[in-house]
Simulated scan of single mutants.
Amino acid sequence: MVSVRDKQRRYRRLQVIVATLALAVVLLAGFYLGQRAAYSGMGLDPATYQALGEEVPVLRADVARLEGELDVQEARHEMDQQALELVRQEIAAQKEHIATLEEGLRFYKSLMAPGEIAQGLSLRSPELVALEREGQYAYRMVVQQETLKHSLLKGYLRVEVEGQLDGEPVTIPLAELSPDVDSDRINLRFRYFQSIEGQLTLPEGFVPSQLRLAATATSPRKAEVTELFLWQVQARFTRVGK
């Protein structure tokens, strides 16, 4: 009896093993046939597919390398552009500096060389530079004399700002606008030129149109000159009169 039962158990185990192996074979065959069908649908054979699979990482590495080189070239190009722009800015600054120096030389030459300008008392165009606060300006006005013999000149200067307030014409003395001026008469005392500088604040709603400058010499001889200048604001002062 024991022997028959052992044979039956062994037979059942063998059946299970054979069934498992058969199932594995069926699954492997199905996977293989399915893969072949997929390759066939794509028009590829397994060898080609495997080769392509091995080539993809290589191509990705090449792309990454090329992208890195592109970034380097773009960075170099940007640096080149920045360097070029700095050179251009430096050239522009040097040209502007040369222009102001030449203007200053012409100014001093006109004072020292008789005949360059009309002899006697004269006024240069006022310079106005806008400050940060609205309605505030820095100003500079230059009174000069050109003569064969530069004697000490004494006198005074009157400055008025003309414009409109609420649609009406208004004239305001500089002394009412600038804390740097104590009275309507600005004292003059110079041999070649005198620069008057300071800051002014316009009343709210006042629209300036021009400046009226009147210079009077009391000695060594009496002279007077009056000129009107348009209200023109510039980016910075020149070197003239400094």
Rank of each mutant, 00 (worst) to 15 (best):
V87S: 09
R124A: 07
V159K: 06
E78Y: 04
G155C: 03
G104K: 09
K109C: 07
Q94K: 11
A118R: 10
P114R: 10
S122Q: 02
Y139V: 02
V56C: 02
G120Q: 06
V143P: 03
R133K: 13
R133E: 15
E103W: 04
K149I: 11
R76I: 07
D62Y: 12
G167D: 12
T100S: 13
A93M: 00
Y137F: 15
K95R: 15
E116T: 04
A92M: 09
H150A: 09
R133D: 14
E168Y: 12
E85Y: 07
G135Q: 05
L157T: 03
L152M: 10
A83D: 13
R140C: 05
L177E: 08
E74M: 08
L84F: 06
S110T: 06
V58E: 12
P179E: 14
E134P: 00
L111T: 01
E132F: 05
A47E: 15
V170L: 14
L101A: 13
Q50W: 12
D80W: 11
L177M: 15
G167T: 11
Q89W: 02
R88P: 00
T147F: 05
A138W: 00
A92E: 15
V143F: 05
R158D: 10
T48N: 11
A138G: 13
Q94T: 11
E176R: 15
I117C: 01
G163V: 09
R133C: 03
S122L: 01
S122N: 02
L59V: 13
E168A: 15
I91H: 00
D80K: 09
K95L: 13
Q82C: 04
E85Q: 14
R76S: 12
